[in-house]
Nucleic acid binder design. Sequence first.
DNA 1: AGTTGTGAACCGATTCACAGCG
DNA 2: CGCTGTGAATCGGTTCACAACT
Lengths: 210, 210
Amino acid sequence: MRFKVPEVTIARLSLYLRCLSDLEEEGIEVISSAELGKRCGINPAQIRKDLAYFGEFGTRGVGYYVKDLKEDIKRIIGLDKEWEVALVGVGNLGRALLSYQGFKRHGFKITAAFDKVVDEERKSVMPPDCTLYHADEMEEVIRKKRLKIAIIAVHYSEAQKVADRLVKAGIKGILNFAPVRLKVPKNVTVRHIDLGIELEVLTFFVAAKR
Amino acid sequence: MRFKVPEVTIARLSLYLRCLSDLEEEGIEVISSAELGKRCGINPAQIRKDLAYFGEFGTRGVGYYVKDLKEDIKRIIGLDKEWEVALVGVGNLGRALLSYQGFKRHGFKITAAFDKVVDEERKSVMPPDCTLYHADEMEEVIRKKRLKIAIIAVHYSEAQKVADRLVKAGIKGILNFAPVRLKVPKNVTVRHIDLGIELEVLTFFVAAKR
DNA sequence: AGTTGTGAACCGATTCACAGCG
DNA sequence: CGCTGTGAATCGGTTCACAACT
């Protein structure tokens, strides 16, 4: 890609990808940006601009070939191979993530989980391809397995420390569920999922409507 | 408030709130926007602008009184009272949310959970103040309890139907974990948490760095 | 004719820079 | 003097509108 691509563009590509999968299942082979836009609630010009960051994928006068565009977007995002992911923190949230079936569909697999406690209960919730390690082994396992993406699901008081260790071990992308803004080098990407903030935003708009 | 407030502003207020709580615990009584900005990684002018939507809270030449500002922001967001929340879907994710302790700290309490299946296993994971109802009772319970905020944690194929029912029952704010963009009337606020998209954004930026 | 790809216009949010005030 | 509050400048992303192309 020639220029800096905004994160929202990638988020939308991911959205288009899902929509294209649906279209494929419905047996639709060609789609215009106008129609795709209607389906996923995005302005058609926006769709064309998003794709333009990466090349030309459409046929003028026709539209986009669903199957081709789907493959192209997969390749752009980097979903043409499976990604192994590390999970740090096997509490309630961690367990929910471990049993979340959606990951596989997207080509992600949690292959290593870390916790300060390694007991039978936790071991029993591990899916087939995932091993539970003690937190002390984090750097070693991540290096050995060459993992690049990690999910932080620990208490917020630990999150920054965990992030520092992950980065040192070679992790380049972090999905953080702890309610703290992690500080990481710029060559590492972080996405924050903060339930508190989400709920408070809702609260404000609900409370305002009166 | 005089004008339309962007959602990001509220998200940041929520962030400031946390930071102010920390400051309070540390015994710091006054803080400048510059210092607060450094702490939570936000430009100081941004902080002042965000607050300016709602009034004047600082003292020129001094800064902001931590305790006062904290209370003011709480009041602005609508956190001066406790919010009862409905949860739809008691699968893995739903259970994780039920046991998530962070809600209380923010003044949220899940008081009603709904699922198509009402069994002993599910009942056993209910926290003290929360009752499990059959999905059929959704509208009735929400109306009776006057709930305004709901969390959707059902399969994506059900999510839009659930949303429609919630809106009809009087819900004004929805936190949606299902990977579909919900269509709701404009007087209803939706926040989407989409793990697939988050991971794919990470993937892109990680894959790009090579 | 129909739809893409894209420069130009637009819009909203962020940052700057300073006047205003304690 | 120092820091807030804010108008003006800037930036980045979205939408428009049309030329280019099939």
